[in-house]
Design a protein around this nucleic acid. Sequence first.
DNA 1: CTACACCTTCAACCTAGGTTTAAGGTCAAG
DNA 2: CTTGACCTTAAACCTAGGTTGAAGGTGTAG
Lengths: 115, 115
Amino acid sequence: MRIGELAKKLDLPTSRIRFYEARGLLKPGRNLNGYREYPDDAAATLRLIGDAQRLGFTLSEIREGLAKAVSNRPSPGAVRVALTSKLAIIDRHIKEASARRREILRLLKDLENCE
Amino acid sequence: MRIGELAKKLDLPTSRIRFYEARGLLKPGRNLNGYREYPDDAAATLRLIGDAQRLGFTLSEIREGLAKAVSNRPSPGAVRVALTSKLAIIDRHIKEASARRREILRLLKDLENCE
DNA sequence: CTACACCTTCAACCTAGGTTTAAGGTCAAG
DNA sequence: CTTGACCTTAAACCTAGGTTGAAGGTGTAG
């Protein structure tokens, strides 16, 4: 599959797919004419990248994860460590956002009292 | 007060204070020698900027808010609109983070079952 | 007079995650 | 042979929020 078809299938710009490759997340083969040739599972990899980003992983972290996944099949332990540390980050995130939320509610309440 | 003293008082680099000025958030006076001279309330303004950032406002939004605050005293209505729309953004944020959290917990559970 | 701390500006650099543009190669159809 | 769609690369540009460095002025103490 060439890059245009892959991009269309996943509805993302070709530039982003090349960008991920530049960041080391993908390593497509090449046709005789130099065109990138993607295996069928490239779509799944790209979806995985999107999912991981949504879970809060950076492209560097995803690159490392993918590298381990291809080399020596990731140990469930390593995956658990990664997920657990990300969970802690998200928890902190939620706590901070909740604090901001309370603060804004307080400000809105103050505002009511002075109108 | 000069920039160094102000920076020390708030424990932030002078570069950041100049950066905020470049973004239009501060407009200090100048001494005869060209040094920036800050009124006492500059510290409060800088704290306000920090608070607003923590509440999720961008520097542009804060600049607009400060501009309205000095020109024609912000109407409580305008402030409420700003806070309410920010509240909606934070709520969405929290919802998304919670969804990510659940997803990670699910993955961790799956991991337990396959160990 | 010399040090030294403090101040100035402007421009370059940084991370993160991309998009846009320029210049050019490939390939099938008409 | 030309046109158009598709592909290539490198480099520039973008937002957001800054930091860093170079080159030089100011002010005070010894």
